[in-house]
Amino acid sequence: MRAFGNKALVTILGLAVLFFLYAPLFTMAVFSFNDSNYTGLPFNGFTLEWYAKVFANEQIIRSFGASVFVAVGVVILSVTFGLPAAIALDRYDFPGKAWFRRIVMLPIVLPGVITGVALLSFYVAIGLNLSLYTIMLGQGTALICITATEVFARLQQLGRSTSEAAVNLGANELEVFWKVTLPNIKSALLGAMLIAFSISFDEIAVTYLLTGRENTLPMTLWSMLRREATPEVNAIATLVVVLSVVLIVLGFAISRSRNALADTGEAAL
């Protein structure tokens, strides 16, 4: 910070950054409690009407459920394929390893629209009907790399010697995984799961192209916004922000409570 020299300027810059980041969220939250049919001044008083409306709106509740369903599925996909990929990359040398690593990484670099179009034409080609499962598959393949990279980074940090020590003490492969590898990558894994969940939860590009009859929450929000920015939308968005904050705080709390890892460093989240 000293490099900037001017303390007042740094403070103003910092506040400006925070303002641009959080003022819109704050505005949105405030208007979600405003007793008016339109998003905007004046304030007519405090109300919970919009929240009541959100919880009474079956379409919103259903799409929220759909989003959670998809996100959970995506997390499962990301872990089932990302975890073994990370372990394979860390522990074994195999032909084409460098290429395998790049290929796993590729989907996150590709724009969502490209992934969406590619998967859509693939699904059409093999005659798969679009549904929540196709969304799940689309997002899941792209998010395998979240788990793979997070866990791989932790494994590299951890080094091989602890698993070698376990084997040397007489542990079989399964015991090495359950007693040594998993406990030490747990926080990275949980972090990756939370990231995958939240990316999936507000994903729209891939979802837009692969959605069937059921909609996810961002899709529903979007279609509502095409008419107008109602206070109801503000209320939903505020709820989503609160949920995200809770998830993130939870994620940090879980990984911090594993202070046993202080040795290997707590860098994943």
């Binding site: 080094g159 010697s161 602890t162 070698e164 020590a165 376990a166 040397n168 003490l169 007693k179 040594v180 406990p183 030490n184 594993r258 046993a260 890892l261 202080a262 040795d263 290997t264």
Partner: peptide
């Protein structure tokens, strides 16, 4: 046979 490693290789979670 059991080995003592240079970097100790103790299990940090235990």
């Amino acid at each position: 046979m059991r080995m003592v490693f240079q970097d100790y290789a103790l299990f940090p979670n235990l």
